[in-house]
Design a binder for these strands. Sequence first.
DNA 1: AACCGGGGTTCCTTCAGGGAACTCAACCTG
DNA 2: CAGGTTGAGTTCCCTGAAGGAACCCCGGTT
Lengths: 151, 151
Amino acid sequence: MQRTDFGEMACSIARTLDVIGEPWSPLILRDVWVGMNRFEQLQSDLGISRKVLTERLNHLVENDILERRPYDKRPRFEYVLTERGTELVDMLMVMVGWADKWLAGKAGPPVLYRHHACGEISHVELTCADCGEPMHAGDVDLVPGPGAAGD
Amino acid sequence: MQRTDFGEMACSIARTLDVIGEPWSPLILRDVWVGMNRFEQLQSDLGISRKVLTERLNHLVENDILERRPYDKRPRFEYVLTERGTELVDMLMVMVGWADKWLAGKAGPPVLYRHHACGEISHVELTCADCGEPMHAGDVDLVPGPGAAGD
DNA sequence: AACCGGGGTTCCTTCAGGGAACTCAACCTG
DNA sequence: CAGGTTGAGTTCCCTGAAGGAACCCCGGTT
């Protein structure tokens, strides 16, 4: 990202940051997710510098988070989430859950989620993909994996 | 964060970024999570500038993500996760899950998680806090909440 | 008294973000 | 068919944050 190259670290968090860790990138992802797909829309919604928006969009396209596709015979383009990008939105949903709990203040959360499966206003919970029980920071031990540092 | 103030946006993602969106902050959080609690440890492990590390630690303490506590009669301090901070680590676990799936490469993930409840090597899955079914980006509708923009 | 080690501060340089102006290639419009 | 419009960028300059090395302070230790 900005100065130090996180992508080379043997750390999944650093590698993720290398893709969406730069300023504005998560907000761009959110906007694209909710249907703001064009350069002008993104620029005016976020108030981001056009130069930086160009850089971020290119970076997200290079990393296969967004796809740039023409939507007109004129040179007009829109950005849509790839499968990879869509799965990154999960991370945003966790950020939202955290902020709604700890930072929302008395006004309450700005946006709510209605879950298709049950129809309820709800939020995400982290569970173990294996047993289905809750799986949070204190519920795991870390063990070195095949790609551990030292390779 | 760096130039634009995300904290004032009526967006839970922006507010979270205001707390841990600056460069290095998620990596500091990770290191503290896995037991690196002291300034010198963090500095040498991350290779971060001492100046920036000081700034980040202060910011995280101000935002009640970390607590700075003395561990000696001498002026020595260590940083430990607060409850708020611990819950933020959930977000890191999702980042790890995403990167392990999409970026790990042939070496495989550098770190694995063993879930206390079931003893298996596993990873996090997002589920609906209400019904328990999977809840991903495509499984929800967004509806305005009480703190929506315009207030 | 001299040294050491943890935990920072100071200062300087460099580079990324902000912001306004400019470009360019289709389309409209009279 | 000259002139304007719109979307999607590019260029340029200025400022401020990241990098990095040197320095400082304080309480032990020798």
